[in-house]
Design a binder for these strands. Structure first.
Lengths: 218, 218
DNA sequence: ATTTAAATTTAGATTAGTCTAAATTTTTAT
DNA sequence: ATAAAAATTTAGACTAATCTAAATTTAAAT
Protein backbone atom coordinates (compact mmCIF):
# COMPACT_ATOMS: atom_id res chain seq x y z
CA UNK A 1 0.00 0.00 0.00
CA UNK A 2 1.27 3.44 -0.89
CA UNK A 3 0.92 6.26 1.62
CA UNK A 4 -0.35 9.76 1.00
CA UNK A 5 3.10 11.19 1.67
CA UNK A 6 4.74 8.81 -0.77
CA UNK A 7 2.19 9.87 -3.39
CA UNK A 8 3.03 13.52 -2.85
CA UNK A 9 6.74 12.91 -3.23
CA UNK A 10 6.18 10.87 -6.40
CA UNK A 11 4.03 13.60 -7.87
CA UNK A 12 6.62 16.26 -7.01
CA UNK A 13 9.42 14.24 -8.59
CA UNK A 14 7.32 13.72 -11.70
CA UNK A 15 6.57 17.41 -12.12
CA UNK A 16 10.17 18.45 -11.48
CA UNK A 17 11.42 15.79 -13.87
CA UNK A 18 9.23 17.04 -16.70
CA UNK A 19 10.91 20.46 -17.00
CA UNK A 20 14.47 19.30 -17.66
CA UNK A 21 15.37 15.74 -18.65
CA UNK A 22 18.10 15.24 -16.05
CA UNK A 23 17.61 13.62 -12.69
CA UNK A 24 15.79 15.51 -9.98
CA UNK A 25 17.80 16.75 -7.01
CA UNK A 26 17.06 16.73 -3.33
CA UNK A 27 16.83 20.45 -2.69
CA UNK A 28 14.35 20.96 -5.51
CA UNK A 29 12.02 18.39 -3.97
CA UNK A 30 12.42 19.92 -0.54
CA UNK A 31 11.56 23.33 -1.97
CA UNK A 32 8.54 21.98 -3.84
CA UNK A 33 7.13 20.17 -0.83
CA UNK A 34 8.11 22.82 1.72
CA UNK A 35 10.15 20.37 3.73
CA UNK A 36 13.80 19.82 4.66
CA UNK A 37 16.43 18.18 2.49
CA UNK A 38 17.09 15.55 5.15
CA UNK A 39 13.46 14.47 5.10
CA UNK A 40 13.65 14.16 1.34
CA UNK A 41 16.71 11.94 1.55
CA UNK A 42 14.88 9.58 3.89
CA UNK A 43 11.91 9.37 1.58
CA UNK A 44 14.02 8.85 -1.54
CA UNK A 45 15.57 5.79 0.07
CA UNK A 46 12.14 4.47 0.83
CA UNK A 47 10.79 5.13 -2.66
CA UNK A 48 13.82 3.39 -4.14
CA UNK A 49 13.34 0.42 -1.82
CA UNK A 50 9.70 0.13 -2.87
CA UNK A 51 10.61 0.24 -6.54
CA UNK A 52 9.05 3.61 -7.34
CA UNK A 53 12.31 5.47 -7.98
CA UNK A 54 15.91 5.02 -9.02
CA UNK A 55 18.05 6.87 -6.55
CA UNK A 56 21.79 7.32 -6.40
CA UNK A 57 23.30 8.96 -3.36
CA UNK A 58 24.38 12.53 -4.01
CA UNK A 59 23.35 12.15 -7.66
CA UNK A 60 19.60 12.61 -7.63
CA UNK A 61 16.50 10.60 -8.40
CA UNK A 62 14.31 9.43 -11.28
CA UNK A 63 10.96 7.68 -11.26
CA UNK A 64 10.81 4.09 -12.40
CA UNK A 65 8.14 3.01 -14.89
CA UNK A 66 6.02 1.97 -11.94
CA UNK A 67 6.60 5.33 -10.22
CA UNK A 68 5.64 7.23 -13.36
CA UNK A 69 2.46 5.21 -13.65
CA UNK A 70 1.51 6.22 -10.13
CA UNK A 71 2.32 9.89 -10.78
CA UNK A 72 0.19 9.94 -13.92
CA UNK A 73 -2.68 8.27 -12.06
CA UNK A 74 -2.61 10.99 -9.43
CA UNK A 75 -2.45 13.72 -12.06
CA UNK A 76 -5.40 12.15 -13.87
CA UNK A 77 -7.43 12.26 -10.67
CA UNK A 78 -6.34 15.79 -9.83
CA UNK A 79 -7.32 17.19 -13.20
CA UNK A 80 -10.62 15.33 -13.45
CA UNK A 81 -11.62 16.69 -10.06
CA UNK A 82 -10.65 20.18 -11.20
CA UNK A 83 -12.98 19.86 -14.17
CA UNK A 84 -15.74 18.63 -11.88
CA UNK A 85 -15.28 21.53 -9.48
CA UNK A 86 -15.38 24.15 -12.22
CA UNK A 87 -18.06 22.66 -14.43
CA UNK A 88 -20.44 21.20 -11.89
CA UNK A 89 -19.81 23.03 -8.63
CA UNK A 90 -19.16 26.52 -10.04
CA UNK A 91 -15.67 26.94 -8.63
CA UNK A 92 -13.56 29.56 -10.34
CA UNK A 93 -10.37 28.30 -11.93
CA UNK A 94 -8.19 29.83 -9.25
CA UNK A 95 -10.07 28.07 -6.44
CA UNK A 96 -9.79 24.46 -7.51
CA UNK A 97 -6.19 23.56 -6.88
CA UNK A 98 -6.18 23.19 -3.11
CA UNK A 99 -9.30 21.03 -2.98
CA UNK A 100 -8.15 18.87 -5.90
CA UNK A 101 -4.91 18.40 -4.01
CA UNK A 102 -6.89 16.46 -1.42
CA UNK A 103 -9.36 14.73 -3.73
CA UNK A 104 -6.54 13.33 -5.88
CA UNK A 105 -5.63 10.90 -3.11
CA UNK A 106 -9.01 9.18 -2.87
CA UNK A 107 -8.42 5.60 -3.94
CA UNK A 108 -11.25 4.11 -6.00
CA UNK A 109 -10.91 3.00 -9.61
CA UNK A 110 -14.65 2.97 -10.02
CA UNK A 111 -15.01 6.48 -8.63
CA UNK A 112 -12.56 8.00 -11.03
CA UNK A 113 -13.76 6.09 -14.08
CA UNK A 114 -17.36 7.02 -13.40
CA UNK A 115 -16.37 10.63 -12.80
CA UNK A 116 -14.48 10.60 -16.10
CA UNK A 117 -17.57 9.30 -17.90
CA UNK A 118 -19.86 11.74 -16.08
CA UNK A 119 -17.70 14.64 -17.26
CA UNK A 120 -17.74 13.15 -20.79
CA UNK A 121 -14.07 12.22 -20.85
CA UNK A 122 -12.54 15.69 -20.84
CA UNK A 123 -9.10 15.99 -22.40
CA UNK A 124 -7.94 19.13 -20.58
CA UNK A 125 -8.38 20.64 -17.14
CA UNK A 126 -9.50 24.24 -16.47
CA UNK A 127 -5.91 25.51 -16.82
CA UNK A 128 -5.42 23.82 -20.17
CA UNK A 129 -3.33 20.92 -18.89
CA UNK A 130 -3.98 17.54 -20.53
CA UNK A 131 -5.84 14.80 -18.64
CA UNK A 132 -4.32 11.30 -18.97
CA UNK A 133 -6.79 8.56 -19.94
CA UNK A 134 -7.30 5.28 -18.06
CA UNK A 135 -4.14 3.87 -19.59
CA UNK A 136 -2.06 6.91 -18.75
CA UNK A 137 -1.87 8.25 -22.28
CA UNK A 138 -2.20 11.94 -23.06
CA UNK A 139 -0.90 14.27 -25.69
CA UNK A 140 0.55 17.66 -24.93
CA UNK A 141 -0.85 20.23 -27.34
CA UNK A 142 1.75 22.04 -29.46
CA UNK A 143 1.82 25.26 -27.48
CA UNK A 144 3.95 28.37 -27.16
CA UNK A 145 4.11 31.27 -24.76
CA UNK A 146 2.61 34.58 -25.82
CA UNK A 147 6.09 36.04 -25.36
CA UNK A 148 7.35 33.75 -28.13
CA UNK A 149 4.47 34.40 -30.52
CA UNK A 150 4.94 35.97 -33.95
CA UNK A 151 3.62 39.38 -35.00
CA UNK A 152 0.35 39.41 -36.90
CA UNK A 153 -0.45 35.75 -36.32
CA UNK A 154 -3.73 34.49 -34.94
CA UNK A 155 -3.70 32.31 -31.80
CA UNK A 156 -5.99 30.68 -29.31
CA UNK A 157 -5.42 30.56 -25.54
CA UNK A 158 -4.82 26.99 -24.45
CA UNK A 159 -3.31 27.22 -21.00
CA UNK A 160 -1.49 29.07 -18.26
CA UNK A 161 1.93 28.55 -16.75
CA UNK A 162 1.43 30.53 -13.57
CA UNK A 163 -1.69 29.24 -11.79
CA UNK A 164 -1.71 31.77 -8.95
CA UNK A 165 -4.98 33.45 -8.05
CA UNK A 166 -3.45 36.81 -8.83
CA UNK A 167 -2.74 35.83 -12.44
CA UNK A 168 -5.97 33.90 -13.00
CA UNK A 169 -8.02 36.77 -11.65
CA UNK A 170 -6.14 39.17 -13.92
CA UNK A 171 -7.11 37.02 -16.89
CA UNK A 172 -10.74 36.86 -15.74
CA UNK A 173 -10.85 40.63 -15.35
CA UNK A 174 -9.54 41.04 -18.90
CA UNK A 175 -11.89 38.41 -20.31
CA UNK A 176 -9.06 36.14 -21.34
CA UNK A 177 -10.22 32.54 -20.98
CA UNK A 178 -9.22 29.19 -22.48
CA UNK A 179 -10.36 29.16 -26.08
CA UNK A 180 -10.28 32.93 -26.48
CA UNK A 181 -8.80 34.07 -29.81
CA UNK A 182 -5.89 36.48 -29.84
CA UNK A 183 -4.09 38.40 -32.57
CA UNK A 184 -0.60 39.67 -31.87
CA UNK A 185 -0.48 43.34 -32.90
CA UNK A 186 2.73 44.81 -31.55
CA UNK A 187 5.79 43.91 -29.50
CA UNK A 188 7.31 46.83 -27.63
CA UNK A 189 11.11 46.45 -27.66
CA UNK A 190 11.56 48.82 -24.71
CA UNK A 191 9.79 46.76 -22.00
CA UNK A 192 8.74 43.62 -23.89
CA UNK A 193 5.08 44.51 -23.38
CA UNK A 194 2.73 43.20 -26.05
CA UNK A 195 -0.35 44.68 -27.67
CA UNK A 196 -3.00 42.11 -28.60
CA UNK A 197 -6.46 42.09 -30.07
CA UNK A 198 -8.95 40.11 -28.07
CA UNK A 199 -12.75 40.03 -28.39
CA UNK A 200 -12.48 42.98 -30.81
CA UNK A 201 -10.70 44.98 -28.16
CA UNK A 202 -7.08 46.07 -28.08
CA UNK A 203 -5.16 45.66 -24.85
CA UNK A 204 -1.54 45.79 -23.83
CA UNK A 205 -0.13 43.19 -21.50
CA UNK A 206 3.17 43.15 -19.64
CA UNK A 207 6.10 40.84 -20.31
CA UNK A 208 5.16 38.99 -17.13
CA UNK A 209 1.73 38.16 -18.51
CA UNK A 210 3.18 37.23 -21.88
CA UNK A 211 5.50 34.74 -20.26
CA UNK A 212 2.68 32.90 -18.51
CA UNK A 213 0.03 32.52 -21.16
CA UNK A 214 0.14 29.52 -23.50
CA UNK A 215 -1.19 29.80 -27.06
CA UNK A 216 -1.57 27.56 -30.04
CA UNK A 217 -1.59 28.64 -33.67
CA UNK A 218 -5.02 28.82 -35.27
CA UNK B 1 -6.21 21.23 13.32
CA UNK B 2 -8.05 17.95 13.70
CA UNK B 3 -6.49 14.80 12.30
CA UNK B 4 -8.18 12.13 10.21
CA UNK B 5 -7.84 9.64 13.04
CA UNK B 6 -9.40 11.99 15.55
CA UNK B 7 -12.31 12.50 13.16
CA UNK B 8 -12.86 8.76 12.91
CA UNK B 9 -12.90 8.35 16.67
CA UNK B 10 -15.34 11.24 17.07
CA UNK B 11 -17.64 9.77 14.46
CA UNK B 12 -17.52 6.35 16.12
CA UNK B 13 -18.32 7.82 19.54
CA UNK B 14 -21.20 9.76 18.04
CA UNK B 15 -22.74 6.71 16.39
CA UNK B 16 -22.30 4.54 19.47
CA UNK B 17 -23.74 7.26 21.68
CA UNK B 18 -26.89 7.56 19.58
CA UNK B 19 -28.12 4.01 20.31
CA UNK B 20 -28.30 4.26 24.09
CA UNK B 21 -28.11 7.52 26.03
CA UNK B 22 -25.38 6.44 28.46
CA UNK B 23 -21.70 7.13 28.00
CA UNK B 24 -19.75 5.19 25.42
CA UNK B 25 -17.22 2.66 26.68
CA UNK B 26 -13.72 1.89 25.51
CA UNK B 27 -14.23 -1.64 24.23
CA UNK B 28 -17.18 -0.62 22.07
CA UNK B 29 -15.04 1.99 20.34
CA UNK B 30 -12.19 -0.47 19.90
CA UNK B 31 -14.61 -2.95 18.32
CA UNK B 32 -16.13 -0.32 16.04
CA UNK B 33 -12.75 0.93 14.81
CA UNK B 34 -11.07 -2.47 14.72
CA UNK B 35 -8.34 -1.38 17.05
CA UNK B 36 -7.13 -2.20 20.58
CA UNK B 37 -8.59 -0.86 23.81
CA UNK B 38 -5.25 0.63 24.82
CA UNK B 39 -5.12 2.69 21.65
CA UNK B 40 -8.62 3.94 22.37
CA UNK B 41 -7.63 5.04 25.86
CA UNK B 42 -4.77 7.07 24.46
CA UNK B 43 -7.04 8.77 21.96
CA UNK B 44 -9.78 9.49 24.49
CA UNK B 45 -7.28 11.39 26.59
CA UNK B 46 -6.29 13.38 23.57
CA UNK B 47 -9.87 14.14 22.53
CA UNK B 48 -10.64 15.26 26.07
CA UNK B 49 -7.57 17.48 26.12
CA UNK B 50 -8.61 19.10 22.86
CA UNK B 51 -12.11 19.73 24.15
CA UNK B 52 -13.93 17.32 21.85
CA UNK B 53 -14.99 14.87 24.56
CA UNK B 54 -15.71 14.51 28.25
CA UNK B 55 -13.82 11.51 29.47
CA UNK B 56 -13.66 9.98 32.94
CA UNK B 57 -11.17 7.21 33.57
CA UNK B 58 -12.82 3.79 33.73
CA UNK B 59 -16.23 5.44 33.29
CA UNK B 60 -16.50 6.09 29.58
CA UNK B 61 -16.75 9.05 27.23
CA UNK B 62 -19.24 11.54 25.79
CA UNK B 63 -18.83 14.12 23.07
CA UNK B 64 -18.86 17.78 24.03
CA UNK B 65 -21.00 20.23 22.07
CA UNK B 66 -17.94 20.96 19.95
CA UNK B 67 -17.32 17.25 19.41
CA UNK B 68 -20.91 16.66 18.36
CA UNK B 69 -20.70 19.51 15.90
CA UNK B 70 -17.69 17.90 14.30
CA UNK B 71 -19.38 14.49 14.17
CA UNK B 72 -22.47 15.94 12.51
CA UNK B 73 -20.30 17.77 10.01
CA UNK B 74 -18.61 14.54 9.01
CA UNK B 75 -21.93 12.73 8.73
CA UNK B 76 -23.28 15.52 6.55
CA UNK B 77 -20.34 15.14 4.22
CA UNK B 78 -20.55 11.35 4.19
CA UNK B 79 -24.23 11.31 3.27
CA UNK B 80 -24.02 14.04 0.68
CA UNK B 81 -21.22 12.17 -1.07
CA UNK B 82 -23.32 9.00 -0.95
CA UNK B 83 -26.14 10.81 -2.73
CA UNK B 84 -23.67 12.11 -5.30
CA UNK B 85 -22.24 8.65 -5.94
CA UNK B 86 -25.64 7.05 -6.43
CA UNK B 87 -27.40 9.83 -8.32
CA UNK B 88 -24.61 11.16 -10.50
CA UNK B 89 -22.02 8.40 -10.78
CA UNK B 90 -24.37 5.40 -10.95
CA UNK B 91 -23.05 3.62 -7.92
CA UNK B 92 -25.40 1.07 -6.42
CA UNK B 93 -26.45 1.73 -2.85
CA UNK B 94 -24.31 -1.08 -1.49
CA UNK B 95 -21.14 0.29 -3.13
CA UNK B 96 -21.07 3.81 -1.75
CA UNK B 97 -20.08 3.40 1.85
CA UNK B 98 -16.36 2.67 1.49
CA UNK B 99 -15.71 5.55 -0.89
CA UNK B 100 -17.80 7.99 1.16
CA UNK B 101 -15.74 6.92 4.16
CA UNK B 102 -12.75 8.57 2.47
CA UNK B 103 -14.52 11.53 0.87
CA UNK B 104 -16.06 12.58 4.19
CA UNK B 105 -12.65 13.76 5.39
CA UNK B 106 -12.04 16.28 2.61
CA UNK B 107 -11.96 19.67 4.27
CA UNK B 108 -13.58 22.43 2.24
CA UNK B 109 -16.68 24.33 3.30
CA UNK B 110 -17.21 25.59 -0.19
CA UNK B 111 -16.93 22.11 -1.68
CA UNK B 112 -19.59 20.65 0.53
CA UNK B 113 -21.98 23.60 0.28
CA UNK B 114 -21.71 23.63 -3.49
CA UNK B 115 -22.17 19.86 -3.61
CA UNK B 116 -25.26 20.24 -1.41
CA UNK B 117 -26.70 22.84 -3.78
CA UNK B 118 -25.78 20.80 -6.85
CA UNK B 119 -27.68 17.83 -5.44
CA UNK B 120 -30.62 20.17 -4.66
CA UNK B 121 -30.27 19.95 -0.89
CA UNK B 122 -31.23 16.33 -0.40
CA UNK B 123 -32.70 15.48 3.02
CA UNK B 124 -31.86 11.78 3.05
CA UNK B 125 -29.04 9.57 1.82
CA UNK B 126 -29.52 6.43 -0.33
CA UNK B 127 -30.13 4.30 2.78
CA UNK B 128 -32.81 6.63 4.11
CA UNK B 129 -30.64 8.29 6.76
CA UNK B 130 -31.18 12.02 7.26
CA UNK B 131 -28.63 14.56 6.01
CA UNK B 132 -27.85 17.40 8.43
CA UNK B 133 -28.05 20.89 6.94
CA UNK B 134 -25.28 23.54 7.13
CA UNK B 135 -26.22 24.33 10.71
CA UNK B 136 -26.23 20.68 11.77
CA UNK B 137 -30.00 20.39 12.01
CA UNK B 138 -31.85 17.34 10.78
CA UNK B 139 -35.02 15.58 11.71
CA UNK B 140 -35.27 11.84 12.05
CA UNK B 141 -38.42 10.61 10.28
CA UNK B 142 -40.90 8.82 12.51
CA UNK B 143 -40.06 5.31 11.44
CA UNK B 144 -40.65 1.75 12.56
CA UNK B 145 -39.26 -1.62 11.61
CA UNK B 146 -41.33 -3.86 9.37
CA UNK B 147 -41.26 -6.38 12.21
CA UNK B 148 -43.16 -3.88 14.38
CA UNK B 149 -45.70 -2.91 11.73
CA UNK B 150 -49.44 -3.47 12.16
CA UNK B 151 -51.52 -5.87 10.06
CA UNK B 152 -53.43 -4.36 7.19
CA UNK B 153 -51.75 -0.95 7.36
CA UNK B 154 -50.13 0.77 4.42
CA UNK B 155 -46.48 1.82 4.68
CA UNK B 156 -43.66 3.28 2.67
CA UNK B 157 -40.02 2.10 2.82
CA UNK B 158 -37.84 4.86 4.28
CA UNK B 159 -34.61 3.20 5.26
CA UNK B 160 -32.54 0.17 6.13
CA UNK B 161 -30.87 -0.80 9.38
CA UNK B 162 -28.45 -3.38 7.97
CA UNK B 163 -26.43 -1.79 5.16
CA UNK B 164 -24.51 -4.89 4.10
CA UNK B 165 -24.26 -5.69 0.40
CA UNK B 166 -26.01 -8.99 1.03
CA UNK B 167 -29.10 -7.27 2.38
CA UNK B 168 -29.13 -4.37 -0.08
CA UNK B 169 -28.77 -6.76 -3.00
CA UNK B 170 -31.64 -8.85 -1.63
CA UNK B 171 -33.81 -5.74 -1.61
CA UNK B 172 -32.77 -4.84 -5.15
CA UNK B 173 -33.56 -8.35 -6.35
CA UNK B 174 -37.03 -8.09 -4.81
CA UNK B 175 -37.64 -4.60 -6.14
CA UNK B 176 -37.82 -3.08 -2.70
CA UNK B 177 -36.42 0.44 -2.83
CA UNK B 178 -36.76 3.61 -0.77
CA UNK B 179 -40.19 5.03 -1.45
CA UNK B 180 -41.78 1.70 -2.37
CA UNK B 181 -45.26 1.18 -0.89
CA UNK B 182 -45.96 -1.87 1.21
CA UNK B 183 -49.11 -3.37 2.70
CA UNK B 184 -48.74 -5.78 5.61
CA UNK B 185 -50.87 -8.84 4.81
CA UNK B 186 -49.95 -11.53 7.30
CA UNK B 187 -47.63 -12.22 10.21
CA UNK B 188 -46.76 -15.90 10.64
CA UNK B 189 -46.55 -16.68 14.37
CA UNK B 190 -44.46 -19.81 13.79
CA UNK B 191 -41.30 -18.20 12.39
CA UNK B 192 -42.16 -14.47 12.46
CA UNK B 193 -42.04 -14.34 8.68
CA UNK B 194 -44.22 -11.66 7.10
CA UNK B 195 -46.32 -11.62 3.95
CA UNK B 196 -46.45 -8.23 2.26
CA UNK B 197 -47.93 -6.74 -0.88
CA UNK B 198 -45.48 -4.75 -2.91
CA UNK B 199 -45.84 -3.44 -6.47
CA UNK B 200 -49.06 -5.50 -6.78
CA UNK B 201 -47.14 -8.63 -5.95
CA UNK B 202 -47.29 -10.74 -2.81
CA UNK B 203 -44.03 -11.88 -1.24
CA UNK B 204 -43.03 -13.39 2.05
CA UNK B 205 -39.97 -12.11 3.85
CA UNK B 206 -38.12 -13.61 6.80
CA UNK B 207 -37.95 -12.21 10.29
CA UNK B 208 -34.39 -11.19 9.56
CA UNK B 209 -35.51 -8.99 6.68
CA UNK B 210 -38.40 -7.59 8.72
CA UNK B 211 -36.03 -6.50 11.45
CA UNK B 212 -33.85 -4.48 9.07
CA UNK B 213 -36.33 -2.57 6.95
CA UNK B 214 -37.62 0.80 8.17
CA UNK B 215 -41.13 1.96 7.24
CA UNK B 216 -43.28 4.97 7.85
CA UNK B 217 -47.05 5.04 7.95
CA UNK B 218 -48.71 6.39 4.84
C1' DA C 1 -18.10 -9.75 51.58
C1' DT C 2 -14.76 -11.84 49.18
C1' DT C 3 -13.24 -13.81 45.12
C1' DT C 4 -13.24 -14.06 40.19
C1' DA C 5 -13.93 -12.17 35.78
C1' DA C 6 -14.21 -8.40 32.70
C1' DA C 7 -12.99 -3.90 31.39
C1' DT C 8 -9.75 -0.43 31.34
C1' DT C 9 -5.45 1.84 31.90
C1' DT C 10 -0.33 2.20 32.18
C1' DA C 11 4.32 1.19 30.75
C1' DG C 12 7.29 0.56 27.29
C1' DA C 13 8.22 -0.49 22.41
C1' DT C 14 7.41 0.31 17.24
C1' DT C 15 6.63 2.71 12.73
C1' DA C 16 6.13 6.71 9.53
C1' DG C 17 7.41 11.04 8.85
C1' DT C 18 9.68 14.88 10.31
C1' DC C 19 13.42 17.91 12.31
C1' DT C 20 18.30 19.98 13.78
C1' DA C 21 23.01 19.76 13.73
C1' DA C 22 27.07 17.62 12.31
C1' DA C 23 29.57 15.10 8.75
C1' DT C 24 30.39 14.07 4.03
C1' DT C 25 30.48 14.65 -0.95
C1' DT C 26 30.26 17.42 -5.02
C1' DT C 27 30.73 21.70 -7.38
C1' DT C 28 32.68 26.19 -8.07
C1' DA C 29 36.13 29.61 -7.92
C1' DT C 30 40.50 31.10 -7.76
C1' DA D 1 44.93 21.93 -7.92
C1' DT D 2 43.29 23.27 -3.88
C1' DA D 3 40.22 25.99 -0.96
C1' DA D 4 35.63 27.59 -0.18
C1' DA D 5 30.81 27.09 -0.99
C1' DA D 6 26.84 24.47 -1.90
C1' DA D 7 24.40 20.29 -1.81
C1' DT D 8 23.48 16.13 0.34
C1' DT D 9 23.52 12.61 3.74
C1' DT D 10 23.89 10.66 8.49
C1' DA D 11 23.01 10.56 13.36
C1' DG D 12 20.01 11.17 16.81
C1' DA D 13 15.73 13.07 18.59
C1' DC D 14 10.61 14.09 18.33
C1' DT D 15 5.38 13.38 17.51
C1' DA D 16 1.21 10.75 16.32
C1' DA D 17 -0.75 6.58 16.33
C1' DT D 18 -0.38 2.09 17.23
C1' DC D 19 0.71 -2.42 19.72
C1' DT D 20 1.73 -6.14 23.65
C1' DA D 21 1.93 -7.30 28.21
C1' DA D 22 1.39 -6.15 32.85
C1' DA D 23 -1.13 -3.61 36.37
C1' DT D 24 -5.26 -1.58 38.06
C1' DT D 25 -10.14 -0.71 38.62
C1' DT D 26 -14.93 -1.99 38.30
C1' DA D 27 -18.59 -5.37 37.95
C1' DA D 28 -20.43 -9.98 38.74
C1' DA D 29 -20.95 -14.17 41.29
C1' DT D 30 -21.06 -16.96 44.93
Amino acid sequence: MITLTEENYIKAIYHLGKQGVETVNTNAIAEALQTKASSVTDMLKKLAEKGYADYIKYQGVNLTVQGKKIAIGIIRKHRLWEVFLVEKLNFKWDEVHQVAEDLEHIKSEKLIDQLDAYLKHPTHDPHGDPIPDRDGNFKQIEKILLSQAILGNKYKCVGVKDTSSAFLNYLDANAIALGTEIVLLHKEPFDQSIKIEINNREITVSQNVAKNLFLKTV
